[in-house]
Design a protein around this nucleic acid. Sequence first.
DNA 1: CGGTTGTAGATTGTCGACAATCGACTGAAT
DNA 2: ATTCAGTCGATTGTCGACAATCTACAACCG
Lengths: 227, 227
Amino acid sequence: MPQLPSLEHFNNKSLRERILDTLKSAILSGELKPGQTLVETDLASQLGVSRAPLREAIQILNSEGLVSTVPYHGTTVTKLTRTDIEELYSLRSVMESFAIQRILEQHHPTAVTDLQAIYERMIAAANDNNWRDLNMLDREFHDTIITLSGHSLLASTWNTVQMRVQQVMSLHNLRNRNIVQVANNHLPIINAITANDLPLATRVIQQHIASTGDLIAEGWHVDEDAS
Amino acid sequence: MPQLPSLEHFNNKSLRERILDTLKSAILSGELKPGQTLVETDLASQLGVSRAPLREAIQILNSEGLVSTVPYHGTTVTKLTRTDIEELYSLRSVMESFAIQRILEQHHPTAVTDLQAIYERMIAAANDNNWRDLNMLDREFHDTIITLSGHSLLASTWNTVQMRVQQVMSLHNLRNRNIVQVANNHLPIINAITANDLPLATRVIQQHIASTGDLIAEGWHVDEDAS
DNA sequence: CGGTTGTAGATTGTCGACAATCGACTGAAT
DNA sequence: ATTCAGTCGATTGTCGACAATCTACAACCG
């Protein structure tokens, strides 16, 4: 049977899921900014759908913490305070440390080569001064660490945290850093895993994440006014 | 103005939230068993509501992982495999260790006394051979550890994990243990916190949780047949 | 003039009906 | 007998309309 590539590329998702994807990506990319209000009627007509699947999508966003609904008043994109960011990165650090611990314990066969492959693409992106690709690869690198741990509950919990990190990165450009150094910062993690040295790996990953987190938290400004 | 105590104690929750509470408590108590199918039409008429708020509640349960929906087919209560339970308890261990680390770091003033108060009630419940109260207090004890850490993101993530633990406990009675010893097992945790000894506290909490988790995982049976 | 009460507009919450999809069963053609 | 198209019943997915609630502002009373 010939491999028809498309044609069910469009429709096989429920409206609710497509709405969810749309909203989620708008929030994570910063297109919908923290504090911004989502009016169901407007959104529904704007997307060309009824309010029922839209509301279902909003409930999901709510329970993922990306938006916050106050009854009979409205739904707003969750604001990120400086404390939120510190919590985000500290929890992320714990989760990745745990993941690495598991990777080392079970002597995962392809872990090192998998991460090295991503690392090499990072170096290439850095040499091209391509921040967009580098950010994508950074996400892929850390996602891979979680995936390699083989802990599905950790992975789904990670997803929530990772989304918020992505949102933070979109809202706060850190491009005044040395791009090659940002890429290189991932090498010590690979080395520690290669050496099978858990204490070292833990220290390295925690320092790696904390440095980025601190950098963002320090420069974080929230507009406290609401007019 | 005289303090009218009640009268808005009843209705001020949306239908969706009341449905959510009802379903959640039914799942966590084991009244709705893993694998069981939820039919929207039946549930709605049974609860005396329309399907719209019911579906919104189901979406939330879905994103919390308590149920699983397959399109046009149905929603079933998520099954718990042995691997799920191992993951549950290993992640729980990481989260509580992290919480205790933070409690020690910030020298939380009331942590020890708060936990001691719960511990004493546990002893009382154990002496009364009251498993119901002891289980409630056990949950309160560990919830308190998370709360005392002052990490709101950890707390909300904990909530997901804690719910699943509660579900597991409902489905698997562990009452052939020595009730006084179960209560006493919490004392080393308090002692380690009192001594401000992080490595000891980490070891103790991990061992505490792992023992329960292993106990459950060992005796876990899932009916693989569906018929 | 200050404070309370009521009303209007906007927004979310809920409902009942209809459409789309799936799985099993049927039945005819080969 | 086997296979495949068609149909039926059940269930989820979506829609438009109506009800409940909140905020702001205006009107009324002291």
